[in-house]
């Protein structure tokens, strides 16, 4: 029997797969569907202090080599979200699947306020979305853009959750000069875990109208073209913060991609756009592919592959007697 269960913070996930925030919203029925499809944990859509309609359409398109979206943090506001989360939590608890709530806000203090409201729904974990690339005009630079603001938000949320026992996951952006520096700042400010990465900013035009296709002008890129960027970030973060659990998210579409993410240093693996590329059965398929690969390579425990890329090769890659290249 191949083990793919993962210990993450104080939880054991039956599988390493975590539904990424924003996929399928926050309704209990859809989060339950993701859980039944094989997610080890599910992340709800981000909510902020008040209701937001989000950006008008087009807000998500397949541009041929990936998805580009700017939904614009559509959400009913923290108070209404807390009710949805409480419902979802009840449904998911019966399946033994942890619920990760997700929050955003305009200031570090406001993050604390939203965290306190959402905590009333008793989510198992709280993801702090400081990296949405699509609300620049209202909120300015994402907090994930520099270590100081990352630390400020993290500290505010940690402070707000004192006594709740809810661990904090900080979601990082890929488009920074050194994601390791941001990761370290989050961990030093108290982040219990990290999620890397959010989508990568991008923009496409329709040349017939000369206009950007997304109503928000720019959006976040996702899909398999994001994978190398995500792997590089996860690799760098693990190197910088080797004991911090990481949800490795970005472009994972196959079981092999998921194994790659674990080998780069991720603890668990976020799944998002794959649900578009392979349909709602994506999670089952990725899980089946991962198990098949592990079995074919006689690996009894997925956990034995974690951060392998940082260590010695798993399989002999050089002929016996040949000089072994220096470890990178």
């Amino acid at each position: 029997m191949t083990n793919i269960s993962i210990d993450f913070l104080n939880f054991t996930f039956a599988t390493p797969f975590v539904l990424a925030s924003g996929i399928w919203g926050t309704t209990a029925s859809l989060l339950e569907r993701a859980a039944r499809a094989g997610c080890g944990a599910v992340t709800a859509k981000s909510c902020g202090p008040g209701p937001r309609a989000g950006h008008v359409n087009p807000s998500c398109v397949d541009w041929g080599h990936g998805l580009l979206n700017a939904i614009g943090l559509a959400n009913p506001g923290a108070a209404a979200e807390a009710e949805l989360l409480a419902n979802a939590k009840t449904q998911l608890a019966s399946l033994g699947v942890p619920l990760i709530a997700s929050i955003f806000a305009g200031t570090a203090e406001e993050f604390g306020v939203v965290a306190r409201i959402v905590a009333q729904a008793k989510p198992d974990m709280l993801e702090v979305n400081i990296s949405c690339p699509n609300v620049h005009s209202e909120f300015g630079e994402p907090f994930a853009g520099n270590p100081t603001s990352t630390a400020e938000v993290t500290a505010q949320v940690k402070q707000a959750l004192v006594g709740t026992g809810i661990p904090v996951i900080v979601k990082l952006a890929p488009n920074v000069p050194s994601v390791a520096r941001i990761a370290r700042a989050a961990v030093e400010a108290g982040a219990d875990a990290l999620c890397a990465i959010n989508t990568m900013p991008g923009l496409i035009l329709d040349i017939e109208s000369g206009q950007t296709i997304l109503a928000n002008r720019s959006g976040g890129l996702s899909g398999s073209m994001l994978k190398p960027i995500a792997l590089k970030c996860v690799y760098d973060i693990h190197k910088a913060c080797p004991t911090t659990p990481i949800i490795g998210t970005g472009g994972v579409t196959t079981g092999q991609d998921a194994i790659e993410m674990i080998m780069a240093g991720a603890t668990t693996v976020g799944i998002g756009s794959a649900i578009y590329y392979r349909g709602p059965a994506a999670i089952q398929q990725i899980k089946a592919e991962m198990i098949a690969w592990l079995e074919a390579h006689q690996i009894a425990d997925l956990n034995s592959l974690r951060s392998l890329a940082h260590h010695e090769p798993l399989f002999s890659t050089v002929p016996t007697g040949a000089p072994v290249p220096a470890a990178h």
């Binding site: 399928w24 919203g25 309704t27 859809l30 397949d62 559509a74 998002g272 578009y276």
Partner: peptide
């Protein structure tokens, strides 16, 4: 909203 089954805005009884 997204039109492609991922954002969940059009949820109806567990269906997108």
């Amino acid at each position: 909203r997204c039109g492609i089954g991922i954002c969940g805005a059009c949820e109806h009884e567990g269906h997108v």
